[in-house]
Design a protein around this nucleic acid. Structure first.
Lengths: 98, 98
DNA sequence: ACTATATTTCTAGAATTATCGAATTGTAAA
DNA sequence: TTTACAATTCGATAATTCTAGAAATATAGT
């Protein structure tokens, strides 16, 4: 509901690399995917990827689960839903605007 | 469909001032609202506002119509819809993910 | 303890973005 | 043709973000 929170969320998705990561996490589903796998698949240096992931975590789009030395990233659908709800509630995306 | 286009769109909405402008334009509906009115209501210096509006225009969220010396900004719902469609198509936001 | 793997943090430079006053442009009225 | 108004562009500065190598941390196996 808070516009600053929504803006922060949109900002974090608003970068090609981060959006690609997000999309990959969605594909991975609820069991998640390791940072290393994302790194391989998207061919991004680890430090750069880590930076982007921390942005997505800070916005609430990702939660993480450790298994041994591997960190799994899991998408938080609730966060995306809250963003979509903002557009429906605050930006009246419905019949009369089409 | 192009992820870079979507990222650009999200980035432009991902700033508190621009998101507030966008929200105000949605409220204004299809007849639009003048730059000056937005400036008054949101209390932003003209040059700063102009900068943000040009970002929203460049992303395709706003079209403009001149009436005398007044420029009206009109929201482009189609653009927002294309972003929402991306989440539905590419990010599978539907039953199995809830 | 030592080694290897997974990931993050540190660091620093380059690039981009944000802000806003001043100057400029476009349009209209006097 | 001068004046006024609406909005943008210019210019300069501050702040943030992006990128990625190097160093550090965390965990696990030997």
């Amino acid at each position: 509901m808070d516009i600053d929170i929504i803006a922060k969320a949109l900002k974090e998705l608003g970068h090609p690399t981060r959006l690609a990561v997000f999309k990959r996490l969605v594909k991975a589903g609820e069991q998640g995917i390791s940072v290393g796998t994302v790194q391989e698949e998207l061919a991004i240096p680890g430090s750069t990827l880590s930076h982007h992931i921390s942005g997505l975590v800070s916005a609430g789009f990702i939660t993480q689960r450790r298994e041994g030395r591997t960190l799994f990233c899991v998408v938080e659908y609730k966060k995306l839903e809250s963003v979509l709800a903002f557009f429906q509630d605050e930006c009246c995306i419905d019949e009369q605007n089409l």
